[in-house]
Write a protein that binds this DNA or RNA. Structure first.
Lengths: 187, 187
DNA sequence: AAATAGGTATACTGACCTGTATATATCATA
DNA sequence: TATGATATATACAGGTCAGTATACCTATTT
């Protein structure tokens, strides 16, 4: 991949989060990235295409990072699901954290037929399935139910954190997650 | 209040949720409401002013409805907090449900200095304080902590429901809420 | 030295946006 | 009937937006 394409993706990701997607024009993106519109449109067919690629890359980066973290410490399924929110907390509290793409995108593109909304919806579903697999590996009966609950805490906490940085929401989300996981393991 | 002002507010509320705030122009609003821009700008100083009023009215309506519901069945504090998510579920599953204004607005206006973002943030905080009062009345020790957790579930569930109608998220949010409330009462 | 490829610079089109100016119509009340 | 308030119709100004057209630059390769 070209260095410039990467730079554009990175810049767009940042601007979309700090200013909003619809409020960020391609002129602004290329100006901040230090290139021109001609170059942007050489790599991306349209702004919509750029948004979709930004969403894909963001989610891939996060999922890769999280997966590596989970595999780095323990291989035991029960440890993994218990540690999930520890890493989510680490990620949310890191200076690089700017939010979750699919949450913001689905809010800005509410129409269910919009490709951006559809991708967001799919990514949210995939993340839930990822948690569900962790739960199933830990022999939790209603894995899907627990995964849904944990994903609600996750999305709620990210939302709260974006509304006000340093809200401490993730700390209480972690506590709630522990209670729900322990309850699901016992039953 | 003028009937036309009400009609404009109502139309704007609906369009903001179904199409997004930034994607909805004032021309569209007045066309759907069956009036003209001149009338809109007689009642609202600017589009930003209209957005702020839409947010205020939406939150007031919801809070009033919820409060009435909570007072209609039981006066006992312990019943109230247990019934909170029953009514939230009723509200989310009603055909009139279109989402929560302050969640979408804070996503579309991420800049913390923006008046719309500030109002959204304030409304989120007020709703959390409302839950906290319910918890305090029920003699729960860490009322603020529980309120934060419940608000995460609430916001997460609404988010999920908006991403896909009929997701069933609220059902599992309700179950999670019960576990967290019961845990908080005992301790 | 010439050709090729990747990036730059800049201007433009046509659409859409918020907000305003101006002139007209409707209708209740005095 | 006359007055004044309210709403309408329409056109416009000034700005921003996505996307394209054209010409130029620069460096590597042949």
């Amino acid at each position: 991949m070209s260095a410039l394409k990467d730079k554009i993706l990175e810049t767009a990701t940042d601007l979309f989060h700090t200013r909003g997607i619809n409020s960020t024009g391609v002129d602004t993106i290329v100006a901040v990235a230090g290139t021109t519109k001609m170059t942007l449109y050489k790599y991306f067919a349209s702004k919509e295409d750029l948004i979709l690629e930004v969403l894909k890359k963001s989610q891939l980066d996060f999922q890769t990072w999280l997966n590596d973290k989970l595999n780095s410490t323990s291989k035991k399924p029960n440890d993994k699901i218990q540690q999930l929110f520890d890493y989510v907390e680490e990620w949310v509290n890191s200076p690089a954290f700017i939010g979750v793409g699919f949450i913001k995108a689905s809010a800005e593109f509410p129409n269910e037929e919009n490709p951006i909304h559809q991708l967001s919806s799919q990514q949210s579903r995939e993340f839930r399935q990822f948690i569900s697999k962790l739960a199933r590996d830990a022999s939790i009966k209603d894995a899907d139910g627990l995964a849904l609950q944990l994903s609600l805490l996750f999305e709620g906490a990210v939302q709260a954190e974006q509304m006000k940085r340093g809200s401490g929401a993730i700390k209480y989300a972690k506590k709630a997650a522990k209670i729900l996981i322990d309850g699901a393991i016992k039953s």
